[in-house]
Design a protein around this nucleic acid. Structure first.
Length: 228
DNA sequence: TGATGATCATAA
DNA sequence: TTATGATCATCA
């Protein structure tokens, strides 16, 4: 029996409240959540790629709109939806944040955006198989994750390798094949968008904006650890 | 067929 | 333009 619910109007005051809100929507479909929140369901995600994430933010009480920080700053928690197939494996890589191409001096893994975002993540798997109509895709049980020593070490190694390439003016030699858990891919509206980066001689060059992403193999391990 | 590289919508 | 939310679509 499904009770009529409405999205919260304020951010969760505690981790427990956040987790409770997660449990409240676990098992419901995106169609049900959209309907109860009076949100229009797009026919497909081709032109609405961020729609599931925005809908979930609404239901968990994350600040609407985009902020350049964590979704729940008071709790130090970042929210990530994760599309999964029928076996519970990730269908897509996970976007983390923009890659700062004009890296401030002294930037380290410990102070990086990537680590800040990934310190504590509320993962919310959602059925993402393209054979399932968007409205029928169900939300799974969300769970809180903090990287363990091993995961943190892998992320740090990847981040340092990629950051070294950026700082030394080798941004254009980076491909998405580098990095065991974390890699870099273009992140822009289209291929004509350019931003500043460092060239080999320390000069500024124009290149496509990039973002950090988590590989599917890495998020798959997170899921396995959570549901094992 | 899966991963890489490209792309879409929106806000400030 | 940068940042949020990600998935699409092409090619090896």
């Amino acid at each position: 029996m499904i009770q009529a619910m409405q999205p919260p109007t304020s951010p969760p005051a505690s981790i427990n409240e956040l987790l409770a809100r997660c449990q409240a929507i676990a098992g419901l479909s995106l169609g049900e959540l959209a309907h109860m929140a009076n949100v229009v369901i797009p026919a497909n995600l081709q032109r609405h790629k961020g729609w599931p994430g925005m809908l979930v933010e609404l239901w968990l009480g994350a600040s609407a709109g985009s902020k350049p920080q964590q979704d729940f700053p008071e709790l130090g928690v970042e929210l990530k939806t994760l599309p999964i197939d029928t076996h519970g494996l990730p269908l897509e890589t996970t976007y983390v944040c923009f890659a700062q191409l004009l890296m401030p001096p002294g930037m380290t893994w410990e102070t990086s955006n990537v680590r800040n975002k990934l310190q504590q993540v509320l993962w919310l798997p959602i059925e993402g198989d393209r054979s399932i109509p968007l409205a029928d895709r169900r939300v799974a049980s969300g769970f809180l994750w903090r990287p363990n020593h091993e995961e943190n070490a892998v992320l740090k190694t990847d981040w340092q390798e990629l950051t070294d390439a950026i700082v030394t003016g080798n941004i254009d030699t980076i491909t998405a094949r580098q990095g065991e858990a974390l890699h870099i891919r273009p992140k822009a509206a289209n291929g004509s968008v350019l931003t500043d980066a460092f060239g080999h001689e320390g000069e500024k060059i124009k290149t496509r904006p990039r973002g950090f992403y988590l590989r599917k193999s890495f998020t798959a391990q997170i899921l396995q650890r959570a549901f094992a």
